[in-house]
């Protein structure tokens, strides 16, 4: 227990140092408060806003889009990844498609998505899904490909059909890899939903930043940024904990 605490302190010290220096600079008047508000001011404002219903509604909107997009990306990514790994013809179709689409910055698709799906939720969810599906697909494909064939053979000999093998053997065996991809996809989703809301939205955390920018309220610009970062870190930690739980028995160290 003490070792874990010590580790946490070691990790936190540079951050704490940075915050302290930042606070000191603002206090000493080295930086103009209008350009760079003190951390204390930002966190105070955040605490204040967290008690207002409107702010929480915006957070809820952002989270809603985030989770919806992530859910679609996970379902699609895992399905396509498993299919590509399990079936040669499927792999031949999916892999080149992914190779063509992966280097394209999906954010560039946003205007098209708006044109097709409208300005509200749907286009943002679609954008999140489009960005998040790739790490999950890659991770699933990689994890499923790495499965020792003898595991599959053992299952086949025991009477499992080739189709059932995908769900009974490939999926659990690839799970550690899939969860790693999911974590990456999670961070990407946080980023993308925020950006989409900044570019074109009437609500959500990203929109709040733009609104504050237009009104020159610097503190209110920092608050959404800090919020999405904290959300991202919190969700990441949650997934990491969940991962440890799910993979309790596994031999993998990933």
């Amino acid at each position: 227990m003490r070792a874990a605490l010590k580790l946490a302190l070691v990790h936190a010290y540079p951050v704490a140092l940075l915050l302290a220096v930042w606070e000191a600079c603002v206090d000493a008047g080295l930086v103009r408060k209008i350009l760079l508000p003190a951390p204390s001011a930002v966190f105070a404002r955040l605490a204040e806003l967290l008690q207002t219903a409107t702010f929480l509604e915006h957070v809820a909107q952002t989270l809603e889009r985030l989770f919806a997009g992530l859910a679609i990306a996970t379902a699609l990514g895992v399905a396509l990844g498993l299919a590509a790994a399990a079936s040669r013809p499927a792999g031949r179709m999916i892999q080149p498609l992914v190779r063509v689409l992966a280097p394209i910055p999906k954010i560039a698709l946003y205007p098209a998505l708006i044109l097709i799906l409208g300005f509200d939720h749907a286009s943002k969810i679609a954008l999140v899904a489009a960005d998040a599906v790739f790490p999950i697909l890659f991770a699933t494909l990689h994890g499923a490909r790495m499965v020792e064939p003898k595991l599959l053979w053992s299952a086949r000999a025991a009477g499992t059909s080739p189709r059932a093998c995908v769900f009974k053997i490939l999926l659990p065996a690839a799970l550690p890899s899939i969860l790693t991809g999911f974590r990456i996809a999670l961070v990407i989703s946080c980023v993308v939903v925020f950006l989409a809301e900044m570019v074109s939205s009437t609500d959500g955390l990203g929109h709040l930043l733009i609104r504050a920018a237009r009104a020159f309220r610097t503190v209110d610009m920092f608050v959404p940024l800090v919020t999405i970062s904290l959300l991202g870190l919190a969700l990441n930690a949650l997934v990491a904990a969940g991962r440890r739980r799910l993979l309790a028995g596994y031999g993998e160290s990933r």
């Binding site: 990790h11 540079p14 940075l18 961070v187 980023v191 993308v192 733009i210 920018a213 610009m221 940024l225």
Partner: peptide, 18 residues
């Protein structure tokens, strides 16, 4: 390390207005 881990989830383009 910890500083970079902190910046990781921040959308860089979102820093544009600031």
């Amino acid at each position: 390390g910890p500083l970079l881990t902190l910046i990781y989830p921040v959308p860089k383009a979102a820093l544009m207005p600031i």
